[in-house]
Design a protein around this nucleic acid. Sequence first.
DNA 1: CATGAATGAGTTTTCATTCAT
DNA 2: CATGAATGAAAACTCATTCAT
Lengths: 221, 221, 221, 221
Amino acid sequence: MGAVKTKRMPRAVREQQMLDAAVRIFGQRGYMAASMDEIAELAGVSKPLVYLYLNSKEDLFTACIRREAGALVEAVRAGVRRDLPADRQLWEGLGAFFTHTAENPDAWSVLHLQARTHGEPFAAEVTAMREEIVAFVTQLILAGAREAHRDPDLPEGEVAGLAEALVGAAESLAAWANATPGVTAHQAAATLMNFAWAGLGDLMAGRPWAPPEEQPGPHVG
Amino acid sequence: MGAVKTKRMPRAVREQQMLDAAVRIFGQRGYMAASMDEIAELAGVSKPLVYLYLNSKEDLFTACIRREAGALVEAVRAGVRRDLPADRQLWEGLGAFFTHTAENPDAWSVLHLQARTHGEPFAAEVTAMREEIVAFVTQLILAGAREAHRDPDLPEGEVAGLAEALVGAAESLAAWANATPGVTAHQAAATLMNFAWAGLGDLMAGRPWAPPEEQPGPHVG
Amino acid sequence: MGAVKTKRMPRAVREQQMLDAAVRIFGQRGYMAASMDEIAELAGVSKPLVYLYLNSKEDLFTACIRREAGALVEAVRAGVRRDLPADRQLWEGLGAFFTHTAENPDAWSVLHLQARTHGEPFAAEVTAMREEIVAFVTQLILAGAREAHRDPDLPEGEVAGLAEALVGAAESLAAWANATPGVTAHQAAATLMNFAWAGLGDLMAGRPWAPPEEQPGPHVG
Amino acid sequence: MGAVKTKRMPRAVREQQMLDAAVRIFGQRGYMAASMDEIAELAGVSKPLVYLYLNSKEDLFTACIRREAGALVEAVRAGVRRDLPADRQLWEGLGAFFTHTAENPDAWSVLHLQARTHGEPFAAEVTAMREEIVAFVTQLILAGAREAHRDPDLPEGEVAGLAEALVGAAESLAAWANATPGVTAHQAAATLMNFAWAGLGDLMAGRPWAPPEEQPGPHVG
DNA sequence: CATGAATGAGTTTTCATTCAT
DNA sequence: CATGAATGAAAACTCATTCAT
């Protein structure tokens, strides 16, 4: 069922196994419905060992959030070449984001749903990650405006809302792409890129944003 | 604290009191952390009566979701005049949406967070509502393209993604507006409208979407 | 085994049954070794009911201590006629004390051993009772000195130590009498009365204190 | 915190370190609340080593009781010169007793509270020690009566009760002296000596027992 | 209609204790 | 000798849920 029951592993390894199991259970059952029994069983260890290493259900959950938040941010960071123009950077970042969330649905459930739903301490943990991403996007928007050779009329405060909307749309599309068969990370990224960069107005007028098919794009599996 | 304890009320009224209490508790504590004891006490009735009328915690939760989903859809529907051009309809719909979620934070928490986080059956309930809204938005996008007098190059499936992205951005902004002091429903609607209709590209080029300030807009409190 | 399992009793009655069971288990197993399961079973109810009425193990233990402390003080108070000379009052008080502790060995274990051994809060509870008794004895000693028509050379502070020693001896003898077959409450009271009033010196010189056999003495079963 | 972690010590030394730690933890936390983890850490050794040397928590506790009981009896024995008259011997014994208990409060807590509170086997261990002391006191009482040149009217069985009462009073006063600031071992011994030898009757009549201030008395720190 | 009395089943957490190295 | 890795068993406590009145 769970991990192969090997005896006597070094602590670091066991801890990762426990986090693997916990992310899976938390992601599928939800934080409260998840039982430490089930997590321990899936990890292939006894409950006391989980407590010995991770202290409590809350600490275990926090450890899951931290690990997965770090992994997601790292995946996006690794997927973006920072020497490209702003729209290309956004395109690559979205691709990496949708790919990672598609490949780790339980982790995405933990970050997007569970952590936000069960108390400030956990929510704060994801908020930190989110702010990193929002800051990145904000920067891209400003860079894009600069590249357009036009003094942006965008009020400082307005950009925050735009970045928030973009990230929110991305988060929502991730869940949608995961749940809708036949929608790949690539397609999700393209849809959002169009929506965000060209806008519905341009799309309707037949002026979509052109994805750069000729060059190595986002790393989509 | 709860409703005033009056004897002998018609069943329908009692049920609404119970749902009021349940939405508040579920919204604040979360589905699992909410206890039937607390809900019964806040509703001003005895626990067995709650079970007599609403059968179980799951049924009670489902009833909450249904009622609040209906109320939200109805609020949006009532806020839109269907004889306006597409962008105006979208503008009014967003205004109604942000207004309703701001005025009913517990209900919004139940729909947006709790229902999605505690198992398929509940998530399906909100998904149904969401699909209604997505369908409405999809229709608006197609109508907008038609109005632009141009054969939309938009592939059928692509529009679904766009609507999904728009609704997702709206949901995310609702939470953001609720949590950020000083951001009104009107501002949230304007930000999203700009983002969605004009797109980042146009915004950067100095071509924002113009909100119709001279006419009665969305019903913002 | 435990109380007869009767269904649907008024709360006050059930609470006394629970306290009865708890005193017995706490007295025999000790506070920490006692399990709420066992107490509930002996009381003939389910564990949740114990928690519903008594809140927690600590509260339950405190309730036991309070009830039994009150019962013991009341037994001593009821056994003493306050219009007698000091030595007779002491004699009657001791008799009542040894009788009560002999008839309620578990309660005595709770008060004398368990409560003193498991934390300040519990110990404070018995200390209050003890101080009542020490105060009574102190008063008797002073009254006795007055009756002896002699200005007592006893320094004020010294009397506290004497009362403490007398009460301590009584407590210790109670356990001894309970554990030694053939020693009645009457005999324990007589021994201690001799020891305390006459002193070893007088006893050795053949001058014991004379118990008033011709009159109704302590109520010994 | 605990003993300095030195490697390769002879077994006997290590065992004493463990017992030192155990007495301290048992005395402060209580038998059940004490954890083997804490004891091992305070002793500066690993848990398995504790088990290797002392087998189990019960055995460890028993070993503590035995060692401390022996130490207390030895302290009293060493403090008494057997060639003095009975009252002087009692005086010296009490002094040694109060001194030892004051200097070893954790050990006294283990013997007086913990051992008596957690089951027959442990209680029996202290009972054995207690009987040694009671026997010594009994002997003193009989010797005192002989010295008084008077055929003691004291019935054989009565003397047991008297010794019991005296020891009980001493135990109780030890706790009282430990808890009451400003009461020295010397004062406690004097108070009890007065109470026991002269008796309340004589005290009230102004005939206290005279402590031998001119000679080397009990070894009070 | 309404409720005080009652519980089965499950939760997190802790601890004494033992191998394998 | 000494220890890091691991666990079986149990404890306190909670909750949704149901009768009998």
